[in-house]
Design a protein around this nucleic acid. Sequence first.
DNA 1: GAACTTACGTGACCTACATCACATTTAAAA
DNA 2: TTTTAAATGTGATGTAGGTCACGTAAGTTC
Lengths: 190, 190
Amino acid sequence: MQAKELLKEHIAKTISLTDEQFDYLFSHFKLQSFKKGQVIIAAGDKVDHEYFVLDGCLKSFYINDDLKMFILQFAMPTWWSSDYNALYSNAKATINLDCITDAEVLCLSNDDREKLCNEIHQVEHFFRWRTNKGYVASQKRLLSFMNNDAKHRYEELLAQYPALYNIVPKHLIAAYLGVSRETLSRLYQH
Amino acid sequence: MQAKELLKEHIAKTISLTDEQFDYLFSHFKLQSFKKGQVIIAAGDKVDHEYFVLDGCLKSFYINDDLKMFILQFAMPTWWSSDYNALYSNAKATINLDCITDAEVLCLSNDDREKLCNEIHQVEHFFRWRTNKGYVASQKRLLSFMNNDAKHRYEELLAQYPALYNIVPKHLIAAYLGVSRETLSRLYQH
DNA sequence: GAACTTACGTGACCTACATCACATTTAAAA
DNA sequence: TTTTAAATGTGATGTAGGTCACGTAAGTTC
């Protein structure tokens, strides 16, 4: 599907815009292609864009002082990703964003998002609901973390996003679940 | 401080409204008083309000099948709380909300929030930013969960909200940190 | 197709935290 | 003030998952 159509459909799930409004909105997005492994945001960078995934799979992750990686999100087509803490508060990135596979994204600047939210009430509504959903999902994941063991969380993840199993190497799944790759490997012994 | 002033100041940090607009907004809030221990939302309830805390301290929490409690949030003055998953998706509550101390809150219905967001663009902007901040905070807590041990998380919590130490019993702090009360007790042996 | 890197599996051992049990202190209720 | 319940401390013991070490398989790159 074309970039424009994919975004249009995605947005139409929450708000309705006229064709003129959507065209205007879309004119602020920039199409970008990345290769597998390519870095979009590195810790320390100035962050001023967010990314809407058209194709491929991204990961956003944190690296701690012991160089251990923790994955916040796998971003598949129609998902949004960035270092939102840095983006919203105009701070340097603490989160990294890179490509697990070759990827195509639409890129929107923070300034343009705020401008569009200001100009088109419906667009502000869209972004409010996008974050509302993200917030609820994040709370659910937090609860699952406190409540469930690694095996349960692994099954939960695969049930929710079966596609990940084929696309994403196991040690990255482990980094998302918050367990070591050895532990994950032992979970599905038979 | 008066309820109205507290809300006005809180909202003025994000948006500016005329006095007429704010009065109109405020007219949709209902003042409610609760006693320590009183339940505001119980799992299974229909949820159609969210709550802005004026005074006292609330907790929102999940109870699992083993009757173990996990605290999502302590809500102090100027904090908002509800079961947002249920509220947004019009589902039955899975999260409970009750009062750790006597409390005063302003209560806003989901329908009224949506109506106000629709009528006053700035109000939608306010609620978008409220959730944006909540989302970022939730991500940070998730990372801290994956990255840090119980002691570290405990110190982090007290550094961020020193008031909690005096107001909230230790076994509730443990339920927020995701450790047993015994483990928490052992953390601050000297 | 050889050289190198990345992914994955598995044993041995270690550690943070859970659970159970019981004592003590503090607060609420009668 | 007495009674009852809630909150906290602490020992003994169990366990999920971490870390280290090493081996094999499977992609990448030259």
